[in-house]
Nucleic acid binder design. Structure first.
Length: 416
RNA sequence: CGGGGUGUAGCAUAAUGGUAGUGUACACGGUUUGGGACCGUGCGGCCCGGGUUCGAUUCCCGGCUCCCCGACCA
């Protein structure tokens, strides 16, 4: 991608109505646009980051043997009334709207009811189980207070998955494997070491659940962590009985600010019973399905990655989610020879399957470097008159600041 | 939802009861060219509704917006 073809522009100053670092940097660098409190549009670069995160999640979910689908945002009132969760007293984040034709619809803040209901058309025998489905959805939640940029919004992208099983063994097998899949996702995003599966209090329909909490100053939660033993507990359930079961004492745990990047819930069979999702077992017995639900906050992860990895110069993306691997920065472009050379390097890198953002703008070096740091792509390759004379490129690793001067051959070898 | 703040140009800011200045961005010209360089010219603005007043961006009332703290977070 040539930067002259990129419509977004960087800003030197952060907007005064954003205090959160993630929003400040993402807006300054042109990854997102704030539409209203807690609602951000994804600009081209921001969308690419989200697609990268989604792809990692998709691969891990696929390994679990689940199918991707896409549910609707509009949801029928009647379905939620059946499980007694339409009432604003019961669920306080509903967005609702009247239908002109009469009646009301809700905007999806979660999808377990509709998808469990849908599955009545597809699950009728134990032979149909176990199975899992997942999707990437814009969740709409009428939060009383949106805050912290991408961390808590009213509209955000979430991966949600639902498992359906015939037996407790099948159910637990999926639940356990999903824990591994989740940790794989966080490892690939570069936050594996800082992400803990915590024991948390259950939601309205669960006996127990787990949260995935990433150490992050900008997070909203406090998690009690023992790094050595790898134990982490949500604040709300720290009591002596729990601690004993986990083999830790209270003073071995350190209260740490964290952000919840994922969660998994065990519904047992209660959800299916409520919704009316039954199957026939081997004996022809009508039996409720075991269900679980599994979420990962995609756009929140984008915010967490910025919060954790950015430095004073700007964003630092892990290579796994960076919109491009290489930022090719051409200096002295008024010199036709340099400009042609840079064009050639751009083509060659692309030919080798390396994703590259090419700063072909007619701008001064200082501005280009500042923008490059702000954008946070993993490697910066500088093409300049100076380099031309020496026959090398300056290659800077964004995360470490390491500078290397490589010849064209070394450059291609390095990235291949 | 309780509390505290905020609102002036695309962005960041200043002053003011007599219609607003600066930086940046943008346009044009010139000097520059390895860390947001400089000079000149130009375009562009007072959240909304009421009230007080000869006159309101400014003062008063109401609303809305956005931010922060708390509560909430399936």
């Amino acid at each position: 991608m040539r930067q002259t073809k990129l419509f977004t522009k960087t800003q030197k100053e952060a907007p005064s109505d954003e205090e959160a670092l993630n929003a400040q940097l993402l807006i300054r660098a042109g990854y997102i646009h704030k539409e209203m409190a807690g609602v951000y549009q994804l600009l081209p670069l921001g969308l690419m980051v989200v697609q990268k995160i989604k792809q990692i999640v998709r691969e891990e979910m696929s390994d679990l043997g689940t199918n991707e689908m896409l549910a609707t945002s509009l949801q029928p009132k009647e379905l939620w009334q059946r499980t007694d969760r339409w009432d604003d007293e019961k669920v306080d984040v509903w967005f609702k709207s009247a239908l002109q034709a009469g009646g009301e619809v809700g905007f999806g803040w979660s999808h377990e009811e509709p998808l469990a209901n849908m599955m009545k058309n597809h699950i009728s025998s134990y032979k149909d189980l176990p199975l899992g489905i997942y999707q990437f959805q814009n969740k709409l939640r009428n939060e009383v207070r949106a805050k912290s940029g991408m961390m808590r919004g009213r509209e955000f992208i979430m991966k949600d998955a639902y498992s359906f099983a015939a037996t407790e063994e099948q159910h637990e097998d999926f639940y356990t494997r999903s824990q591994t899949a989740y940790m794989n996702v966080f490892k690939r995003l570069g936050i594996g070491d800082d992400t803990y599966m915590t024991y948390a209090a259950g939601g309205a329909f669960t006996e127990f659940s787990h949260e995935f909490q990433t150490v992050c100053e900008a997070g909203e939660d406090v998690t009690y962590i023992n790094k050595e033993k790898g134990v982490a507990i949500n604040e709300e359930v720290v009591d002596t009985a729990d601690l004993e079961a986990l083999g830790v004492t209270k003073d071995e745990l350190v209260a740490t600010k964290t952000a919840e990047v994922g969660n998994i819930f065990n519904f047992g069979r209660s959800k299916a019973e409520e919704v009316g999702l039954f199957f026939k077992d081997e004996n022809g017995e009508r039996t409720p399905v075991w269900m679980g639900s599994y979420g990962i906050g995609i756009t929140r992860l984008m915010g967490v990655l910025v919060e954790k990895m950015a430095d004073e110069k700007g964003i630092v993306w892990p290579e796994s989610v960076a919109p491009y691997k290489v930022h090719l920065v051409a200096l002295n472009t008024d010199d036709q020879e340099i400009s042609d050379w840079a064009d050639g390097v751009y083509s060659s890198l692309k030919d080798q399957g390396i994703t590259v953002l090419y700063d072909d703008r007619d701008a001064r070096p200082g501005e280009k470097f500042a923008d490059s740091d702000l954008l946070g792509l993993p490697y910066r390759v500088v093409v300049s008159k100076k380099g031309k004379e020496a026959g090398t490129f300056e290659v800077v690793t964004r995360a470490t600041g390491e500078v290397r001067n490589l010849t064209e051959e070394e450059l291609y070898a390095d990235f291949s």
